[in-house]
Amino acid sequence: MNTTSDTLECGHSLAELSAYLDTGQIADPVHLETCPECQAGLASLRHLSELGRELLSSDVADAGSGTDDWMQSILDNLRLELRPGRSIPLQSGNPNDTLWETEGSISALIRSVADALPGTAAGKCRLHGDVATPGAGITVDVEIAVVYGHPMEERAATLRQELAETLALHTELTIQAINITVTDVLEPPKPASPADPTTPADATTPADPMTKEQP
């Protein structure tokens, strides 16, 4: 674009061309087709659009993957806020005080224990029973996925043991049973492929179940 004014020598304005780019509409389409000035202006704007798309790709690449820590931490906050679940009362030292654990905090704790075991990943997790009544019998259902090649029975037994200990430590629930169901066998992780935000199937690289974020 070698003109210094917004109006081209042919009398048409760059603003018209800009709008044409977005809407496909212009007052004088025949002129546009044949005018070298307009065609040059349009080419320049299209070139800019192309650069804009490159900038977007570069920014999206910089933003990282949806499976990275930044998104994980946002999702953790959301779980806290959106799905607190039932309130589980805790014994308090003073009759005026009310102490609670949210069901969501316990589900997340259970998931983190399952995720921390090598070759396993937590799926759904439910507390069945009247959690609001102290002493009521509670059943825990946990679904897990196990990476192909890891011994399922052994993983389930270990997890059951670890969950029993963790729940005894961090809750006052009376746990009657911990049911663990292996719902999936996962393919061993493959090297990550570059994410492409425009095609859903490739947009998120499947998380590597072997990579644990827990300490």
């Binding site: 969501g104 905090s105 961090h170």
Partner: peptide, 24 residues
């Protein structure tokens, strides 16, 4: 709850504490 109550003494208080997350 106890720490809050102690800090407020002698003023009587009702403390509501929700644990919304366990673990890092």
């Amino acid at each position: 709850a106890e720490a809050v109550r102690r800090h407020l003494l002698p003023r009587p208080a009702a403390v509501d504490v929700s644990v919304v997350k366990v673990g890092a």
